[in-house]
């Protein structure tokens, strides 16, 4: 049951990327990022204020936490831009590679307070499959 829920979550993420890219046919990239975030903001604020009756508080965090919105815009704008030109499947495939590489870099240097961990040799077969996949995705 929970496996199906997770598959459903992934499918909804894919639908989100495709719909956001579709929005890019009507608006500029900043228009897309505006509507994507504004709709979610209104829904989430309504849920927190009206149903959960939570107090909104955003003070007392390190400065880089407040860059989260800038990164949100960069993520939505870049994914919509790429999806419009090469499709959501290719975006997700290459983006996954970026996520794996950046996770390894963050682990290696211990950025964001993460414990420092070196890449292990047993990860090599996985990276070879990924490299072969990337070649196929880019060439075809």
């Amino acid at each position: 049951m929970y496996y199906l829920i997770l598959l459903g979550a992934g499918m909804l993420q894919g639908i989100m990327n495709s719909l956001n890219a579709k929005l890019g046919e009507y608006f500029s990239l900043f228009g897309v990022t505006f509507f994507v975030h504004a709709i979610a903001m209104v829904l989430l604020a309504a849920y927190l204020l009206l149903i959960r009756r939570e107090k909104l508080r955003f003070r007392g965090a390190p400065w880089y936490i407040y860059l989260v919105g800038v990164m949100g815009i960069a993520v939505v704008a870049s994914s919509s831009y790429v999806t419009m030109h090469i499709g959501a499947g290719t975006l997700m495939a290459i983006s996954t590679v970026g996520q794996l590489l950046s996770s390894e870099v963050i682990d290696l240097f211990g950025f964001f307070g993460m414990p420092r961990v070196r890449p292990a040799l047993n990860q090599l077969p996985g990276f070879l499959f990924i490299a072969a996949g990337v070649v196929l995705v880019i060439l075809y």
Partner: peptide, 27 residues
């Protein structure tokens, strides 16, 4: 750009987790 998107997703996820820890998941 897709590769850069992957880097941004990772950093954004870590920052979001930290924001959730500081302000609560919803906030």
């Amino acid at each position: 750009t897709a590769l850069l998107n992957g880097f941004l997703v990772t950093v954004n996820r870590l920052t979001n987790v930290e924001a959730g820890r500081r302000f609560g998941t919803g906030n």
